[in-house]
Design a protein around this nucleic acid. Structure first.
Length: 302
DNA sequence: AAGAGTCACAACCGCTTCCGC
DNA sequence: TGCGGAAGCGGTTGTGACTCT
């Protein structure tokens, strides 16, 4: 289709955001919600393009973002999902609700790629299961692979393949990536980092705002609460977590039962399959984390 | 102490997808 | 059904911080 870039107008500011700009953006979003990005620069007077505003919000200012210090379990989830889904960072981020796709992408490019190469050279500790085609590297056309799976009907070979992969991923001890992410979400210190970002900016303004109802968390249209994780495992720990509407579990789009479905949220689907060594390792890690982390309700800023 | 090299991550660019008309 | 605008997404770049020599 092709269209001119939205940011090539004169007078559109680029580069790092200033605290003042952040305050303006956060204030606007608190009042109007994060939809309709095009109106943001117009309404706020920010000399930024709508896209830049959206990115700043989703990658940095949005509440609930966990920054830095990826745990070994998060690494494991990323590695595994990358081997399944390829570089579909938004999809991968849907399994780590507190991480942004940009963050995961950066972490992959700067840390995990190297780490994997090293590990593979040392004896393939991180090597994907035998059933997983390709490696976690860049040589395999993961998107094509995933698309093929997505388009397969519910009884096709692709479906069978990905069911197996995902069931392996979620099967161990009733754990799931969501549960693991929830355990991560229970770390109050990790949450504080992004709360700090905003609360620093808004100071007493934020403190004076009463907490809104859950569905209004930070985007009434764009956000829905993630189910309590016990809907899948019966052992949920997080009271509430949030993800954007685009952050549907990626494998569900492939027709994969991820323990529940949208229409009938509380129907657990059991996909039991033997764990490969890597999954076992992943969930051993997760279990330790979940048991040790203290859970809390996600503070709601908006 | 200073310059070069490397790393980490925020932000940008441009293509794709979605959706309303 | 096709078009065009808006949002989403992934790849890439820019730059400040850090480390090494």
């Amino acid at each position: 289709m092709g269209r001119p870039p939205c940011c090539d107008k004169l007078g559109v500011k680029k580069g790092p955001w200033t605290p003042e700009e952040d305050i303006i953006l956060v204030s606007y979003i608190q009042e109007h919600g994060p939809g309709n990005w095009r109106s943001v620069p117009v309404s706020t007077g920010l000399m930024r393009c709508s896209k830049s505003c959206r990115l700043r919000w989703t990658n940095y200012l949005r509440p609930g973002i966990k920054r830095g210090n990826f745990t070994s379990h998060e690494e494991g989830v990323i590695v595994h999902l990358q081997s399944l889904l390829g570089n579909r960072w938004a999809a991968i981020a849907s399994y780590l609700p507190r991480r942004t796709d940009n963050d995961i992408k950066n972490y992959w490019n700067t840390h995990l790629k190297k780490k994997l190469r090293k590990q593979q050279a040392m004896g393939a500790i991180f090597a994907p299961p035998a059933s997983s085609p390709g490696t976690a590297g860049d040589n395999f056309d993961h998107r094509h692979h995933h698309d093929m799976i997505s388009r397969a009907d519910g009884h096709g070979a692709g479906q069978a393949y990905i069911n197996m992969e995902v069931s392996q991923l979620i099967a161990g001890r009733g754990q799931s990536p969501f549960a693991a992410a929830a355990a991560e979400a229970c770390s109050s210190s990790s949450y504080a980092s992004s709360v700090d970002n905003i609360s620093k900016l808004l100071g007493s303004f934020m403190k004076s705002s009463p907490p809104p109802p859950p569905h209004n968390s930070y985007d009434a249209d764009d956000v829905k609460p993630v189910l309590p994780f016990d809907s899948m495992s019966g052992t949920g720990s997080a009271e509430l977590s949030f993800t954007t509407s685009v952050q549907q579990p990626a494998l569900m789009e492939a027709g994969v039962g991820y323990g529940y479905d949208d229409e009938n949220e509380t129907k657990p689907q059991q996909h039991q399959a033997p764990l490969s060594s890597i999954e076992k390792w992943l969930f051993d890690e997760a279990a330790e984390l979940e048991l040790s982390d203290e859970c809390y309700s996600v503070p709601m800023l908006f």
